[in-house]
Computed example of a mutant assay.
Amino acid sequence: MHVWKSAVAATALAAAATGGYAQEKITLSDLSWNGAQAIGHVLSAIIEGEMGGDAEIVSGMNQAAVIMAGMDKGDGSIDIYTDLWMPNQQALWDEYIDGNQTVATNQPYQGTSNIYVPSYMADKVSSIEDLKNPEIAAMFDTDGNGKGEYWAGDVTWASTKRWQIKFKSYGLDGLWEPNIVSADTFKAGLEAAYTAGKPQLFYYWTPEAIHVKYDLTALDEPERFDGCEDVNLDAEDWLEVSEFECVIAANEIFVAYSKSLENRNPAVAAMLSNVQFTGDEINGWIVEMFENKRDPREVAEEWIADNKEIVTAWIDG
């Protein structure tokens, strides 16, 4: 261990002496939500622009377990998980960050997770208790099977299981059923429904540009109490053995990266350890990149140019 650390230090000193950075290519995840993609564009712009390196957002690299296993191997197949939501990925954190200690993180930013309706529905639906009314559920039944529908998330997301557990724990699964589709499919349906003033019930999070585009209301949920969240997403019968009867605590959201970078590209590893985002910054990127349809690289480079002192501090430590 001491020999390896000494080698890392020597590499970093050599890079500093020559005014350059280690140039091994850096690979970033391609997660499916806008915040993660925006972070990927900003980090790759820093690596390629400010640091003179080579970076690639790996198309289709969007499965959490695959990303973490790749970073654990440290072979460069994937180096950076751009937006690790906790405690959604607790099992992977336990295995690779606390257990194998092959993956490191920066300091997190804060996010929230709630269940929403368009605000034009808020006079009828404002709390979880309202969802226990069969007449309310019937308003959200689009296929005539007697159950209202809510978007729980993408099939690949841990949060999708959590919302199903929450609806069961709240005693809502007799009246409601999850609609599990991709974020893009959901957002297309929401836009059509919102334009027509139709009911929609769905999970969403902050930061995200959807809150700029639409007027949304989060439903009131019970406050947190000891034992209100007892979840085992890895169990074969995860829905039956888990309980979740309270609002989700504020999420901590990290950039995670392979510790192998400390040897393979110590300058980038150091930069990633220093990165500190805010939700407002990320929301601004999302709006420009995905709502205003600007070129993501242009948005990233513009933000970097406007925040040189921050980025330089990340790079130089």
Results as ranks from 00 to 15, higher is better:
183 A>L: 13
4 W>I: 13
103 V>F: 06
202 F>H: 09
16 A>D: 14
312 T>G: 00
267 A>C: 10
273 S>Q: 12
31 L>K: 01
285 W>S: 06
153 G>K: 04
255 V>C: 00
289 M>D: 06
147 K>W: 08
102 T>C: 00
271 M>L: 12
81 Y>P: 00
68 M>F: 08
148 G>C: 06
146 G>Y: 05
256 A>W: 01
145 N>I: 01
245 E>N: 15
134 P>Y: 04
265 N>F: 14
121 M>K: 10
227 G>E: 11
198 K>M: 12
67 I>H: 00
71 M>V: 11
69 A>C: 02
116 Y>Q: 06
250 A>W: 12
35 G>H: 02
5 K>G: 09
250 A>N: 15
274 N>D: 12
135 E>L: 01
305 A>R: 12
303 W>S: 05
80 I>N: 03
165 I>A: 07
295 D>I: 08
192 A>E: 14
18 T>I: 02
283 N>W: 00
201 L>F: 01
187 K>V: 08
213 K>W: 03
166 K>Q: 13
119 S>A: 15
113 S>L: 13
270 A>E: 14
177 E>D: 11
87 P>D: 11
91 A>T: 03
96 Y>C: 05
213 K>G: 04
214 Y>R: 05
75 D>W: 00
178 P>C: 07
147 K>R: 14
4 W>K: 11
134 P>N: 09
103 V>P: 02
224 R>K: 09
56 E>C: 01
52 G>M: 05
53 G>L: 09
174 G>T: 07
37 Q>A: 13
241 V>W: 02
175 L>R: 03
91 A>K: 06
242 S>N: 03
82 T>K: 03
177 E>I: 01
221 E>M: 15
227 G>M: 12
252 E>G: 04
4 W>M: 08
199 P>M: 06
190 L>F: 04
260 S>R: 10
6 S>R: 10
15 A>H: 05
308 K>P: 00
136 I>R: 02
76 G>Y: 02
277 F>D: 04
226 D>L: 03
218 A>Q: 04
16 A>L: 13
129 E>R: 06
262 E>G: 11
315 I>E: 07
286 I>C: 09
316 D>G: 06
186 F>C: 00
285 W>N: 08
242 S>F: 01
